[in-house]
């Protein structure tokens, strides 16, 4: 069954898109992806992020945790790549500690691996990279 892409606001800083949890932490949008990542969910993320951008000062980073994520549809991957090209986006850190997450991240980054998207196997390293200017 495909994932719901409904946006639910728990608080100003915690929003859910289907089974994905989105947290606003300073100038970082922290996404914990869970289950299959459909095209509809990717669209919902893009919509939500553009809304969040308006209330965030300066450039925005993304920390995307793929440890519980399932397959990304090709269209969803393209939409995530678009996130990296947005004016407001600074960096995107993809996080995963196991081989499945590493494979998912490779597919998201694709053959034209963007400079501002990087994969990390530890959250500490990812956060450190995001904070680097």
């Amino acid at each position: 069954m495909s994932q719901s892409a409904e946006i639910k606001y728990v608080s100003e800083n915690e929003i859910w898109i289907g089974s994905n949890k989105v947290m606003v932490e300073g100038n970082t949008i922290h996404v914990i992806a869970q289950g299959e990542q459909t095209t509809e969910m990717a669209h919902a993320h893009l919509k939500l992020n553009q809304k969040l951008f308006s209330s965030m000062e300066g450039k925005v980073n993304f920390l995307i945790d793929l440890n519980k994520a399932g397959k990304n549809s090709p269209e969803a991957r393209q939409i995530w790549v678009q996130h990296g090209k947005l004016e407001k986006t600074s960096k995107i850190a993809l996080l995963g500690i196991h081989p499945v997450a590493r494979v998912l991240a490779s597919f998201v980054m694709g053959i034209n691996k963007p400079n501002n998207v990087c994969f990390f196997s530890s959250e500490e390293e990812a956060v450190k990279w995001l904070k680097q200017s």
Binding site: N67, K71, N72, P74, H98, P99, V100, A101, R102, V103, L104, F107
Partner: peptide
């Protein structure tokens, strides 16, 4: 189990 075989399966699927 998110092991190497799962990673291989995920890669093939995608």
């Amino acid at each position: 189990e998110n092991n190497h075989l799962d990673a291989l399966a995920m890669g093939i699927n995608m």
